[in-house]
């Protein structure tokens, strides 16, 4: 199954001190967000991200998607968006897409592991994977 029926171009936002690196490679069906999330204006930071996902999932059909969240820290305003984003993933899976969500946590901080458990337990259709982060070179 094609992962990118609309041939959407890759979507990327570089990381800042307060916002994550967003890297959506739609051709590969591999979507990643990593870093920290407590942007000054959560709504304006995430609006284009959610718009891109909306377009992608709208066309994905029964395609494959691997979504990787590797967040060190997010504030309560970002938590709301992440919850919403996970609901989007689950909705796409409910419509037939094969969605795998990987939630990577820093093994030195079990708060993010607990949050992963709490956020992940609501997924009914997407497959959820909770894994310790491997400190990589990137």
């Amino acid at each position: 199954m094609s992962t990118n029926p609309l041939n959407l171009p890759a979507f990327q936002i570089a990381a800042t001190d307060r916002s994550p690196h967003v890297d959506f490679d739609f051709d590969a069906g591999r979507l990643r967000m990593r870093g920290e999330s407590y942007p000054e204006d959560v709504t304006s930071f995430y609006r284009p991200v959610l718009d891109a996902l909306d377009k992608y999932f709208g066309a994905l059909g029964t395609g494959d998607c691997r979504f990787e969240l590797s967040l060190i820290y997010f504030n309560s305003a970002s938590a709301k968006v992440i919850m919403f984003l996970m609901e989007m993933l689950d909705a796409a899976a409910a419509k037939g897409a094969a969605v795998d969500l990987f939630w990577y946590y820093d093994p030195e901080d079990d708060t993010m592991q607990e949050l992963g458990e709490e956020f992940g337990e609501d997924l009914e259709h997407a497959r959820f994977h909770l894994e310790a982060m491997v400190r990589d070179a990137e």
Binding site: I72, Y73, N75, S76, E108, T111
Partner: peptide
Amino acid sequence: TDTKTVRSVFAIFVEQMQ
């Protein structure tokens, strides 16, 4: 301090300031 404590203090700081 250990990582978790540093992040918790920081997270509380962020929420209080916001």
